[in-house]
């Protein structure tokens, strides 16, 4: 069991992490670099010259090899962490007779992992482009962790509960962090153009959705194949 957990977790984390990193460097890093140009002041939007326009820049994302290798490594580490938690979830689900998990079910787990770990926290705390601001860090980290935990618990209640009551409790758990509200900013202060920031947010979510589904699919596939 331990071996099966580790092999499927590590394999899925490596594969999905690689794909996520590739998508990230291709689609997200150019926007990050552009955001940093505005953050550092190398580029100005709504500058003191009075012009409301600023030129669109296209940074070369592949040029900085060290930076990208770091990103590849840390993305693999992150997705391996997600994968290990997911296969632990597979094992628990099967112990409670809610299996067997295969590639198809794994993909659904992946999609719901995306919902819990990315989509739900992003509803309150949008993915942040460098050069935009957020509320105080510690408060955001606490809200992020609380939201991910509550959403996971809510999804488990809805997915595995047997009564209407458990589904209702699940829905409430998912809604609660947003009814409480994420730590908010009280001024707008971002120096990056809103167009750039919005594109960064939508791309982050898109890349994450795909990477999570791949993660679940591969984890489920390896898990199913290594059934003793």
């Amino acid at each position: 069991m331990s071996r099966k957990l580790l092999t499927s977790g590590l394999f899925a984390g490596l594969a999905a992490g690689l794909i996520a990193a590739l998508l990230q460097v291709t689609f997200i890093t150019p926007l990050l670099l552009a955001g940093e140009a505005f953050e550092s002041g190398a580029q100005l939007h709504f500058s003191t010259t009075g012009s409301p326009q600023s030129e669109v820049i296209h940074p070369e994302a592949w040029a900085d090899v060290t930076r990208n290798l770091n990103t590849v490594a840390m993305t693999i580490v992150t997705y391996t962490g997600f994968a290990l938690l997911m296969v632990a979830g597979f094992a628990v689900a099967e112990r409670f007779g809610r299996g067997p998990v295969d590639a198809r079910r794994g993909a659904i787990w992946g999609l719901l992992g995306f919902v819990a770990v990315q989509l739900a926290p992003s509803f309150g705390l949008p993915p942040e482009l460098p050069g935009t601001i957020g509320a105080e860090l510690a408060a955001r980290q606490v809200w992020w962790l609380g939201t991910v935990s509550a959403t996971l618990a809510g999804l488990v209640a809805i997915g595995f509960g047997r009564t209407a009551m458990s589904a209702a409790v699940g829905g409430l758990l998912i809604a609660a962090p947003h009814l409480i509200g994420a730590p908010a900013i009280d001024t707008y202060f971002g120096v990056a153009p809103p167009e750039l920031s919005a594109h960064f947010a939508t791309r982050s979510l898109g890349v994450a959705a795909l990477s999570w589904v791949v993660l679940g699919l591969i984890a489920g596939l390896v898990w199913d194949r290594s059934r003793a």
């Binding site: 996520a20 997200i28 770091n70 840390m74 482009l129 860090l137 994450a208």
Partner: peptide
């Protein structure tokens, strides 16, 4: 996940910077 996403050590932060932004870790 903690090491990659939340560790305040500056080396970890710099290495994981782009990943953290893309995965929307605060």
């Amino acid at each position: 996940i903690f090491a990659a996403g939340f560790s305040h050590a500056s080396g970890m932060h710099d290495m994981a910077h782009d990943t953290r932004h893309a995965v929307s870790f605060p």
